[in-house]
């Protein structure tokens, strides 16, 4: 069962990465796009982090390294370090995963990620600043949708089992 669950996460990672590059990437708003794979791992980190979801993050790095030209270190930060940090803080501070907290975590994580993928020396353009603001807003909104769906179907289903 655990192997099956791990495989499911790998397939989800593959589909999410394909969706990011072939669907959401076509909808650019102020040079920012939705990164569904990133939003999903943040929501997992907020709600139900365990070893299978680490596979998801690892395979996201692998698939995105093939499908995008983003530096590997930034993928590691986005899909490993940020979720593990959320998980660590969740254990240390014992915060509850409620929508308000989810919004805050998603917003801060997206800002962190956006700052990592843009070189610090290139903040002169106004467009770029707008894109830096648009990215967290867009991904937080999408993340909240995933958060609600995940809460409703996945967690509730697990609770009943």
């Amino acid at each position: 069962m655990k192997l099956f669950e791990s495989l499911i996460w790998i397939v989800v990672a593959f589909l999410a990465c394909c969706l990011d590059t072939s669907f959401f990437a076509f909808y650019e708003i102020f040079n920012a796009t939705i990164i569904s794979s990133f939003c999903l791992i943040l929501v997992i980190a907020l709600l139900d982090y365990k070893i299978q979801s680490l596979y998801y993050g690892a395979f996201c790095i692998l698939f995105l390294s093939a499908l995008s030209s983003l530096p590997i270190y930034s993928l590691f930060i986005a899909y490993m370090i940020i979720p593990l940090l959320i998980f660590y803080l969740r254990q240390k501070i014992y915060f509850e995963a409620v929508p308000v907290v989810a919004v805050f975590v998603l917003l801060v994580s997206s800002v962190l990620f956006r700052l990592v993928i843009i070189p610090l020396g290139s903040f002169s353009s106004g467009e770029l600043l707008i894109s830096i603001m648009a990215f967290p807003i867009l991904n937080t909104l999408f993340g909240i949708v995933i958060f609600v769906l995940f809460n409703k179907f996945y967690i509730v289903k697990r609770g009943h089992n």
Binding site: T21, S22, N31, I35, L67, S68, I117, I118, F135
Partner: peptide, 14 residues
């Protein structure tokens, strides 16, 4: 075009 750079940097396409 069947793929784009997903991070808004508009760098590469597939």
């Amino acid at each position: 075009i069947i793929g784009r750079e997903p991070f808004g940097a508009l760098d590469r396409i597939i």
